[in-house]
């Protein structure tokens, strides 16, 4: 067994700042936009139909109307922008995912900490060929990493790689994404 004990300088450590993150799939921004519209518009229509009672009559319908014409498009635009900025990177020993527009979050999950991996895709995501990759750790929900916005082929590749690293052994040829 060879033994090495070379001294390392902090500057020689692999740095997060040097990583070139890859943007998520193009269709993810469109999916998020459609998802936002499908959630936001019905909610505001319902709000505008509320009865005009209470301390300030007509306030809630007013909020609904203004939300519909002003906040709805703003929310959708922000969602679209945020989705376009999402990016990830797979290194030899960890998985990195950046999300957020105003509050940016960069989550790094060492591959050795992954307990199991799950791929999920809803009907709307399947319409855009997208898959979510959920990596679970023993650290509870705050330690898990949800990599959203991968196309099905990339998600399968990343999942195969992670599974191969988590359980050393021959990697499966191909695992189709879950329906």
């Amino acid at each position: 067994m060879t033994f090495s004990n070379a001294q390392l300088h902090p500057a020689e450590l692999p740095a997060l700042a040097d990583i070139q993150l890859q943007p998520v799939a193009d269709g993810y921004a469109r999916y998020r936009l459609l998802h936002a519209l499908l959630v936001w518009i019905p909610a505001l229509i319902l709000l505008s139909l509320l009865p005009t009672q209470g301390p300030w009559p007509g306030l809630l319908p007013l909020i609904g109307v203004w939300g519909l014409v002003g906040l709805g498009p703003l929310y959708s635009a922000l969602t679209w922008l945020e989705a376009r900025r999402r990016a990830y990177a797979l290194r030899e020993h960890d998985l990195i995912y950046r999300s957020g527009l105003f509050v940016q979050r960069t989550r790094i999950l060492p591959v050795a900490r992954i307990q199991h991996v799950e791929t999920v895709s809803g009907p709307l995501e399947r319409l855009f060929g997208l898959v979510r990759l959920n990596c679970f750790t023993a650290g509870g929900s705050s330690g898990d990493l949800l990599l959203a916005g991968l196309d099905a082929a990339t998600a399968a590749q990343v999942r195969d790689y992670l599974l191969q690293r988590v359980e050393p052994g021959p990697a499966p040829d191909h695992i189709p994404p879950d329906d």
Binding site: L16, F102, V103, Q104, R105, T106, R107, I108, L109, P110, R113, T137, A138, G139, S142, G143, D144, L145
Partner: peptide, 13 residues
């Protein structure tokens, strides 16, 4: 440590 999260709001950036 099991996972690392770096968080930066616009104010922090």
């Amino acid at each position: 440590v099991h996972a690392v999260l770096v968080r930066q709001s616009w104010f922090q950036r």
